[in-house]
Amino acid sequence: MPTMDEHYRAPVVPLPSARRTRAGEQETDPGGWAELHVHSAFSWLQGAVQPHELVAEAARLGITVLAVTDRDGLYGARRLAEAAKAAGIGTVYGAELTLDDSELGAPVVLARDLEGYRRLSAQISAAQLAGSKGAPRYDLAQLSAAAGDGHWAVLPGCPGPDFDRADVGAVAHRLQRLVEVFGPCVYGELVDHHLPEASVAMDVMAVAARRTGCPVIATGAVHYAAPRQARLAQALAALRRREDLEHAAGHLMPAPTAHLRSCDEMQQVLARHPGVLEATVEVGHTLVIDLDELRPELPGFPTPRGYTENTY
């Protein structure tokens, strides 16, 4: 395995140009993009737009698979399902879990199928009941059991504010801890918000994933649909800190880059990581769920003689 120094001495791959078919025609889209880490407005004061706004922008960009992964909840699932069905976009459902263990951070759990969706919903409900408002308490043993037979895919998600994303040892340790809890369903996650540290962080994640045997995909860690909504996202983040924009400035994302991107844009982002774009799209399509197939089985409510539940 190459050292980090050897990794950085490797020749830089140029940004991709349009590929050509045998007939000489340009081909720039390998099959759309799958965005698997997205916060909607249902991530309270973290996401800036509603699911239908995310779907509209995804359709404009040619995104073929879209997830909504709100913090500690599946609140936007039905709205995503309705909007995406009309737009012909595949839907992925998941949530970013706030775990007490600081080493684990806030991993994103994606349901692979309806059974995975049911298990994730049950784990979130149990954590919300065990904790307090805004502070769910997850049982790691129960999460591990729920993840045990392949119904979830897990991304590292957002690390804590003090986590050093440039420390390959720390990143590898975090991935290994996630594998210990969730099993072999953990993926390395490359994220590029076009900030100065992003390139190094992506390289470090790629190396750490190789060390721990985790496959690698990429996401946009999206918090709003389009760049024009970045200011709204900053205002919400400041409100979450109970500060105005001036006082919260050092804690806000400095660039309007946490938005949805097209496949062509992601090709440029991932030019130095061959195969990751295709792997992401492939994984995304395996996670698509039709929520209309979910048939809730609610318990009956006791009613007096002569009444149905509706008439009572």
Rank of each mutant, 00 (worst) to 15 (best):
Y138T: 01
L232N: 08
A146C: 10
Y307M: 15
G105E: 02
R231F: 03
P107Q: 02
G188Q: 09
L104F: 12
L260G: 03
P107Y: 06
Q267S: 12
H193S: 12
R112G: 08
S40I: 00
C214S: 14
S125E: 15
A111T: 00
L270F: 13
R112H: 11
P156L: 05
T257M: 13
I217R: 00
A208R: 03
R210I: 14
D162P: 15
G94H: 01
R78M: 15
P51R: 00
T28E: 09
T28I: 10
Y187P: 08
M266L: 08
V154T: 06
D139A: 14
G31Y: 10
A255C: 10
L239E: 11
D192Q: 09
P304F: 14
H7Y: 14
A235I: 13
E189K: 03
G306V: 06
A34K: 02
A225K: 01
T28Q: 06
G47I: 03
D100F: 11
H251T: 03
M253F: 10
E246M: 06
P256T: 05
L110D: 02
A209M: 09
Q50D: 15
R211Q: 15
G150K: 05
P254W: 13
A130E: 13
V281N: 00
V207M: 12
G300M: 08
T69C: 09
Q268V: 03
G73L: 02
V283C: 02
A83L: 01
C214W: 01
L232V: 07
R272G: 05
F182P: 03
A279T: 00
